[in-house]
């Protein structure tokens, strides 16, 4: 039913890019310049110009992606072309260099380009791998359902806690408030559970409170279990048992959400490398082209 950016229009752009690569290879093999092979020969300049145009086209994806009224093909098509032409670019630029490398701006441009292409390949890998992992992980429940479930559990827990006593209400409300399953990108990537809980160190007084680690809602569970162990009231025991069960479910759901967030951030992290490098490449390319004119 669906056609991915890889298979777009039966590999249309893969075919174009392969054809272009063959033409470039044949031209390189057949070319017999007067001077040593490098970017300065006729073919060298041709390949360089072609490569520069391809780079501009590849960067233009960012513009096309945001031109929502555009009738210039679909973004899927653009991404497909972006990938295959990007891969072909590696060949074109390598042949353009004539394998001459050194400690200069030209090689820097080449290295940046390789890094951009490399990070792009990483992107392809993540786009192909993580979405289906996430789908499997969510197991047929939609995003909205998962967050609604969590909200429902929060409300159920609060309601139960309120019915027990004020202290339990504050405890559960605090646990919900301090639940943190990844606010920063780093926390999301590492799936770090930064949840905390404020616990009164002195049972009699509320003046002295400590904020303790509540990873996987462990501290809350332990506190509730303690309360359960000390309780003699039948109604209260039932309520706390129920609350414990809900807290357990909540911890499990949080873990699931955390894993999903981790996958989501893994899906995006490559862009934090790919995009800055692309702009660095564009700048280096501009310098590379400008300096080349001085050779003339």
């Amino acid at each position: 039913m669906h056609q991915s950016f890889i298979r777009y229009k039966n590999y249309r752009y893969a075919v174009y890019a392969t054809m272009l690569s063959f033409v470039v290879i044949i031209a390189y093999v057949l070319d017999a310049p007067y001077q040593p092979v490098n970017g300065g020969t006729f073919l060298g300049y041709t390949l360089g110009t072609l490569g520069a145009f391809i780079i501009v086209f590849l960067m233009w994806l960012g513009v096309r992606k945001r031109s929502y009224y555009s009738s210039l093909g679909s973004v899927t098509g653009w991404l497909s072309a972006h990938i295959y032409l990007g891969l072909a670019l590696f060949l074109i630029a390598t042949l353009h260099s004539g394998f001459q490398f050194g400690w200069n701006i030209h090689t820097l441009t080449y290295v940046l380009m390789c890094l951009v292409i490399g990070s792009g390949c990483w992107g392809i890998y993540t786009y192909l791998k993580y979405p289906s992992l996430m789908a499997q992980f969510r197991n047929e429940s939609s995003h909205t359902e998962v967050s609604e479930n969590l909200r429902d559990l929060d409300q159920q827990a609060l309601r139960l806690a309120t019915s027990i006593d004020k202290q339990s209400h504050e405890l559960v409300a605090d646990a919900i408030r301090r639940t943190d399953i990844g606010a920063s990108l780093w926390a999301q990537l590492s799936a770090k559970d930064g949840s905390k809980l404020m616990i009164n160190s002195d049972k009699q007084s509320t003046d002295t409170a400590n904020i303790v680690d509540n990873k996987e809602q462990h501290a809350l569970i332990v506190t509730l279990a303690g309360k359960l162990a000390g309780s003699t009231n039948v109604d209260e025991i039932t309520s706390i048992q129920e609350l414990l069960e809900i807290t357990g479910n909540r911890a499990a759901l949080l873990k699931k959400l955390q894993k999903e967030k981790q996958l989501q951030s893994l899906l995006q992290i490559w862009l934090f490398v790919h995009l800055p490098l692309s702009f660095a490449l564009l700048a280096a390319l501009a310098i590379h082209i400008t300096t080349v004119f001085f050779y003339w």
Binding site: H2, Q3, S4, F5, R7, Y8, K65, Y68, Y69, S70, S74, V75, T76, W78, L79, Y127, P131
Partner: peptide, 11 residues
């Protein structure tokens, strides 16, 4: 449809 056109991966 803009939604389909704007989808980068063909999803």
């Amino acid at each position: 449809p803009a939604c389909v056109n704007a989808c980068p991966t063909g999803a």
